[in-house]
């Protein structure tokens, strides 16, 4: 920094001018890197994640991401302020999280689409540290359309572990990215809404925000209704399946079990797959 700056002595003419030019050039170097540069670099090489805050039906959440995808979603109500989130993130992931003023446009767009119920949203997740089983459970939950729910047992059966219903519940309860992987769309096998990574009350709020009526759902559960069938097609579905919701009152038939539906000559819907439809 202290070496002589005028390397143009040979040029007698315009020396003063050159000095001023060199001084002006020097001033061009006075720059401050954009605020997100550090966070973006560290998240791309996975030495730390970048995060921003987002408003959702359950209040503001912190969303963290790195090169592998979304790594964490935490409620501000649970972790407190920015410092609280950064502490909680470091405890869980053993690496720091740095705030960005603006997430990458493509990522922000995909998150918005996902929260808006668009299942084609191109979201990736960083699920390192999760077991194969946990990953299978979380990915399966992603297949449930917005405004619909499936029981824990459905996930267990779909991933080929029909006996692991309780483990499915645990895996969903430990979902590191609630809302974006919609574990809220998985309910108790008796139809009650059940627990949630963000708490039972939040689960009802999120489901309601997706256009589902949690009270109606639990009403059906109390009445012992597991499935709805149509007496015109003789197909039965989960009550929240888009196909079940199309059945008119006149043609809707309620079933308490797969066996009951089968005995009545109904086959399971191939879309919501009450029993593994072959």
């Amino acid at each position: 920094m202290s070496e002589p700056r005028d390397g143009h002595r040979t040029e007698g003419q315009g020396l003063g001018r050159d000095r001023r030019l060199v001084r002006d050039l020097r001033a061009l170097g006075a720059g401050v890197a954009p605020p997100d540069l550090l966070a973006n670099v560290l998240s791309r090489v996975r030495l730390g994640d970048a995060y921003w805050t987002l408003d959702t039906p359950v209040g503001p959440v912190f969303v963290a991401y790195n090169d592998g995808g979304i790594s964490a979603v935490m409620r501000a109500a649970a972790v407190g302020d920015v410092a609280g989130f950064e502490r909680a993130f470091r405890e869980r992931h053993a690496r720091p999280a740095h705030p960005v003023t603006r997430p990458p446009a493509a990522l922000a767009h995909a998150v918005e689409r996902q929260l808006g119920g668009d299942r084609r949203a191109d979201l990736r997740f960083d699920l390192r540290g999760r077991s194969d089983f946990e990953r299978a459970v979380l990915l399966k939950a992603r297949e449930i359309p917005p405004g619909e729910v499936r029981p824990y047992g459905w996930i267990a059966r779909e991933i080929g572990r029909p006996g692991a219903v309780r483990a499915v519940g645990t895996a969903l309860g430990n979902n590191p990215v609630p809302l974006l992987i919609p574990c809220h769309r998985v309910v108790r096998s008796d139809g009650r809404v059940g627990d949630y990574a963000f708490g039972g009350a939040a689960k009802r709020a999120v489901l309601a925000a997706e256009g589902l009526d949690p009270d109606r759902l639990e009403g059906l559960a109390r009445a012992g209704v597991c499935y709805h069938g149509s007496d015109t097609t003789h197909v039965y579905c989960f009550p929240t399946c888009a196909h079940a919701r199309r059945i008119t009152d006149r043609h809707r038939v309620a079933f308490r079990s797969d066996e009951e539906a089968a005995a009545a000559g109904y086959r399971p819907c191939r879309v919501c797959r009450p029993a593994l439809a072959s």
């Binding site: 996975r46 592998g68 299942r119 990736r124 390192r128 990953r135 990915l139 879309v271």
Partner: peptide, 26 residues
Amino acid sequence: MAAERAGEAGRAAVEGTAAPRDKRRG
């Protein structure tokens, strides 16, 4: 529609196996 869903799951490229440089920061 079921096939479409399977595609969905496939596209949800999940990062799971790669665990490079797990040395923790000093």
